[in-house]
Write a protein that binds this DNA or RNA. Sequence first.
RNA 1: GACCCCUUCGUUCAGCGGUUAGGACACUAGGUUUUCAUCCUGGUAACACGGGUUCGAUUCCCGUAGGGGUCGCCA
Length: 461
Amino acid sequence: MTTRTRFAPSPTGHVHIGNMRAAIFNWLYARHTGGQFLLRVEDTDRERSTPEAIKTLLEAMDWLGLNVDEAPLYQSARMDAHLAAAEKLLATGHAYKEDKGGTGQGECIIFKMPGTDIEFTDLVKGALKKPAADMADFVIVRSNGTPVFHLANVLDDIEQKITHVIRGDDHVENTFRHIALYKALGAPVPQFAHLPMIINAQGKPYSKRDGDAFVGDFQSKGFFGDALFNYLALLGWSPGDEREVMTRQEMIDAFDLVTVRSSPAQMDLRKLLWMNGEYMRAMKPADFAALCRKELAAAGIGIEGRATSPTEPRSCETARSERLAPPINSESAGNAAVFALMQERTKLPSEIVSAAAFFFSDDFAYDDKAVEKKLSKPEVFQTLEKIAGILENLEKFDAETVNKALHDFVEQGGLKFGDVMPPLRIAVSGQQSGPDLAPVLAILGKENVLVRIRKTIARFS
RNA sequence: GACCCCUUCGUUCAGCGGUUAGGACACUAGGUUUUCAUCCUGGUAACACGGGUUCGAUUCCCGUAGGGGUCGCCA
């Protein structure tokens, strides 16, 4: 018998990270066992289950690569079947009608617990047992005629032939009731695996106020679906060895439910960030370049020529002449060099713009603190002037040549690197930190570097 | 309150009767670098507590404490 797992969320417009981890474990288990992974949309709450909410859900799954093997089952379409089953339970004596609480709202249908102890072996928590005395009968159809979660959930799992119910810890108590339902319905009881919750630093369920709690939050911040998947898979599970950054296939191969931990786990956004950086570095240069282009374009920075600033049209010749020399040439080699420099030091796409914009725009902003700290003494400007002179006379302007020229300058002048490099970096980039300076200068090109140095001198001396 | 579950470095995952208790993130000290980041080499840091069982417990059992979950005509 092939395994069939499912993700059964109720669409609310947001997909909680804890829910998504349950989906990931379901997916991983189905793939590991060569079975099927299904989706059931529990959309009986018509208020919240809007088309947009369902779309959000589907997009989140798609983003994380959680492909399903069959068309989703929409619970709202199953009401007749649920009600019919309730009638059957009534007919077989497993349920009865009652005006519970005597509210006068009419009779609801109540499932009669069998009166025996119920036990099952949870795949992650082990043997679990509940005595008959601790379990009360429960409502399966409301007095308004609508089915309750327990009935609908079990019936749909039967309909979808689910063999392994992998879900959140908060459902363990329900499981005893569900097992009784399966038996009364004459259906085989599936295996259960209850996942511990994701908690915050206070040990409470991780929620929105603890930080990013929804899949969409991570997506919009630029995290990769694969990185989040990888991180979440490792929250409560490990392959048994010391691998952490793993491919999908490696995770599928190593996954198992019995090795899932049964204690709650806390989100560590810093480790997620680190992992995202690992995925960033593992990207193909071409893919990373495409990402850079996208980010820069979104920030209004054209990388094939001058900066494109919507507020500053550059058609006027006068305005043009006042601007700096053109930024680096638009040859793809130049861009590729920038991207290569960035790929080594970026963890989130959003960092690209702030760190690399100066390559493409002569309108880069100066870091006030850096200026105050490094460009305050008069002699700094003399030094910059000298450097400009030296660079201007260089025949070649590749990183190696530039690097040697700068080293020679420092040594012959009896200076310290700290007196020379930081001001120069600020002059050409506005920032006090960044990639190796020589390659940066080489990429910018001699003309740009000279103009930027002189503009800096003019502005701050 | 009742019932159930959980408890190894700050976080996370290993360990499944005998280990110098390991890896990763974070932190930190050096190295590399003009700087930040990357990278390399180190370091700090944990078995909640008390009883058993055993030649021997982080590992097994029982308590205690702490934390969490569930007790709806919500899902």
